[in-house]
Simulated scan of single mutants.
Amino acid sequence: MSTVTIYHNPRCSTSRNALALLREKGIEPTVIEYLKTPPSRDELKRIANATGEPLRALVRTKQAEYTEQGLDDPALTDDQLIDAMLATPVLINRPIVVTPKGARLGRPLERILEVV
């Protein structure tokens, strides 16, 4: 079993490039297509903690659903953001790479190398 996991959307070029970069480095990660198999509430919290960034950094702000659901409101709690991400997984930013060293959102792509 791989100790590297990528939360991946195969339709996203950045996500495809992150997967290719890992493979170029000789790493065959566990690939989770999060639109088909979204992470749980606890997993989202663990991933956010492992990035060292606020949970909001994992929310994809360029999706129409972001503004449609009022997620641009800075007063929303992490639990409210997680509820939205679980209900609408396309709101989860990608790619996210998780390793024993931590987790990184691959924007910019090279950031994933910090944890591999």
Rank of each mutant, 00 (worst) to 15 (best):
M1R: 14
M1C: 13
M1Q: 14
S2V: 08
T3W: 13
T3P: 11
R11M: 14
S13E: 05
S13A: 09
S15K: 07
R16V: 03
N17A: 15
A18R: 04
L19H: 04
L19E: 05
A20H: 05
L22P: 01
L22A: 03
R23H: 04
E24A: 15
E24N: 14
K25V: 10
E28I: 14
P29Y: 04
P29E: 00
V31G: 03
E33Y: 05
E33C: 05
L35F: 07
L35S: 06
K36T: 07
K36S: 10
P38L: 00
R41N: 09
R41D: 10
R41K: 09
E43G: 10
L44F: 02
K45P: 04
K45F: 11
R46Q: 15
I47M: 06
I47W: 05
A50S: 15
T51F: 09
T51A: 10
T51V: 09
G52Q: 06
E53C: 13
P54C: 01
R56P: 01
A57L: 13
A57D: 13
V59P: 00
V59Y: 03
K62F: 11
K62D: 15
Q63I: 12
Q63F: 12
A64F: 12
A64Q: 14
A64G: 10
E65Q: 10
Y66D: 01
Y66R: 00
E68C: 09
Q69P: 09
G70N: 13
D72E: 14
D72T: 11
D73G: 08
P74A: 07
L76H: 12
D78F: 02
Q80G: 06
Q80P: 07
Q80T: 10
L81F: 00
D83G: 00
D83V: 01
D83F: 00
A84V: 09
M85E: 04
M85H: 06
A87M: 08
V90F: 08
L91N: 03
I92S: 08
I92M: 12
I92E: 04
N93D: 10
P95W: 00
I96K: 01
V98D: 00
V98R: 03
T99R: 06
P100F: 12
P100D: 14
P100Y: 13
K101N: 15
G102K: 09
R104G: 01
L105P: 03
L105N: 06
L105E: 07
G106I: 01
R107T: 00
R107W: 03
I112Q: 06
L113F: 03
E114F: 07
V116F: 11
V116M: 13
V116R: 09
